[in-house]
Amino acid sequence: MRLHDRVFLLLGGTGGIGKSLVEPLVLAGAKVIVASRHPEKLAHRQGVALVPLDLAAADLDQQLLRLSEAYPDIDGVIHCAGQNRFAGLAAMSVSELDAQIAVNLRSAMLVARHFAPRFERAGYGALVFVGSTFGSIGFPGYTAYCATKFGLRGFTEALRRELADTPVQVVYVAPRATATDMNPEAVNELNRALGNSVDTPDSVASQILAAMKNDDRRRFLGWPEKLFVVINGVLPRIVDKAMLKQLPVIRRFLKPGVTS
């Protein structure tokens, strides 16, 4: 995938992995349109446009229409926005469940629904989705997050096959644990207690760009996480047993709460 002279709509570009994508995209010669509920969080710089967009909004489809009318040259979308909460399912409020479904899965579907036909008519275009290792391995304390990321992985796979005879590229990249502000200190402590490797947003961003340049259809990041993905798909009972051994440690960091 060529990056030079491309116009990418970047969703989730004001923090974490998304923010780390902005600079290398610009340096590669792309124009970046960062869409966020809080675009003011990103400093203005040449080659970057900041626009408001609420991925959880009921009228997201209409917001996307207005955005693409304002920026008709968009020929690529990178969706790396996401929400999560580390908690037992019983501690999750209905609004928290709805927010994760809306941002992590529904918004990706609406973005693809809006842009894929436009890219197909134009004769080129790319849809890049950032998922998670937890889109392939269910993990205690992340039931809702895993559900949305499993959904995202399945959606991108089906979409890629649906568009296989078109010029539209569909790329799925699944990072492992990443050090972003989305993780509370309890999650950082849990990762240390379990000995989990944690990547920096910059290193993940570089892997996403590498997947794009290499025209990868999907890329899973981290070792041994990539191995666990394969094992979980073939012999899930092995992972079940490993998780059961970790469960007492995981439970120490899960916070009780009330549903609403």
Rank of each mutant, 00 (worst) to 15 (best):
S132I: 02
A108V: 04
S136Q: 10
A81R: 03
V168T: 12
S68L: 14
G138F: 00
Y124P: 09
V77M: 12
C146Q: 02
F155Q: 07
Q169A: 15
V168F: 10
E96N: 07
E96I: 00
A126T: 14
F115S: 05
Y172P: 03
S107K: 06
G125R: 05
L127S: 03
L65E: 15
F119L: 11
I137G: 00
Q63E: 05
A122T: 12
D59P: 07
A87L: 04
V173K: 01
V168C: 11
A179Q: 05
I78Q: 04
P175E: 00
A126P: 06
G88L: 00
E69R: 12
A122K: 15
G154D: 10
Y172D: 06
T156A: 15
F119C: 11
N104D: 08
M92R: 05
E162N: 15
A102S: 09
D165I: 13
A81N: 03
H114Y: 13
N84V: 01
L67D: 06
R66Y: 09
A57I: 03
D59T: 07
F119Q: 10
R176Y: 05
V94K: 08
K149W: 04
E162L: 14
E69Q: 13
R106A: 04
G82R: 01
D61W: 05
M92P: 00
S136Y: 10
F115H: 08
V111E: 06
F129A: 06
V128Y: 04
A126Q: 13
R66Q: 12
K149L: 05
G131H: 02
E162K: 15
A56V: 00
A126G: 15
R176V: 03
A91K: 00
R153I: 08
E157S: 14
Y124I: 13
T166S: 15
I74S: 07
L152R: 02
D54N: 12
D54H: 07
